[in-house]
């Protein structure tokens, strides 16, 4: 079994034939483009401080990768609260309206049948169906919202080219500043990361 921190692993041989290895095509140059700088930190506390420093240095295209959600990271990165809740609310409202409409349309409009002398449509027996559909569509809305906002699913990410990055789901703490960032200038990002306390900085290619 190969574990991510197995010292016997050779990064280059391990990457050969990797499904996420960059494909050669006329549209991709043979020399891989730089994606960004990957800095590893020793602990969540250290990453949190580094994130605050990178935030204050004015970077915009950067991210932190940790094996678990770190409390306080949103504030340290200057992130706004998630808007997934609106997706769930929209799904819930749609589900409720759909449920009520469906019961009315099917039992009172399209094929009305009087059962037990009861009204063709009453909101009360329609309520369980409308309630269940609002829960169902709210849950699907929350999931769909998360996938859309996170741009998931995706089959490949440039960071998967780094073998060390496999530790991001194990016990590694990483901060990435992308080359695409307008403030990314030469050595300044690397120096900032070093000053933030990173013990390992590497360039990741796409």
């Amino acid at each position: 079994m190969i574990t991510p921190d197995d010292p016997s692993r050779q990064p280059d041989t391990a990457r050969r034939g990797h499904p996420s290895a960059p494909r050669q095509s006329p549209f991709h140059p043979a020399t891989p483009a730089s994606y960004g700088l990957l800095a590893q930190f020793d602990s969540a506390a250290d990453t949190l401080r580094a994130a605050a420093m990178v935030r204050d240095a004015g970077y915009r295209h950067w991210d932190v990768h940790t094996p678990f959600p770190v409390r306080g990271m949103d504030a340290a990165m200057g992130l706004a609260p998630s808007r997934v809740g609106w997706w769930a609310a929209a799904g819930g409202a749609l589900g409720f309206a759909l449920g009520m409409w469906m019961v009315w349309w099917m039992n009172a409009h399209d094929y009305p049948i009087v059962v037990g002398g009861k009204p063709l449509f009453s909101p009360i027996p329609a309520l369980p169906v409308a309630f269940e559909l609002s829960i169902l569509l709210a849950a699907l809305g929350a999931l769909g919202g998360m996938l859309w906002l996170n741009r998931m699913p995706r089959l490949h990410h440039p960071l998967f080219n780094s073998d060390r990055f496999k530790l991001a789901t194990h016990d590694g703490f990483f901060l990435v500043i992308e080359t695409a960032d307008p403030a990314f200038a030469g050595d300044a990002a690397r120096q900032l990361l070093r000053r933030a306390g990173s013990r390992h900085i590497e360039e990741v290619t796409d």
């Binding site: 949103d74 992130l79 089959l155 960071l159 998967f160 991001a168």
Partner: peptide
Amino acid sequence: GWTGSARHWRH
């Protein structure tokens, strides 16, 4: 395609 990104963890 999960990467453990803090931006993803938030959502």
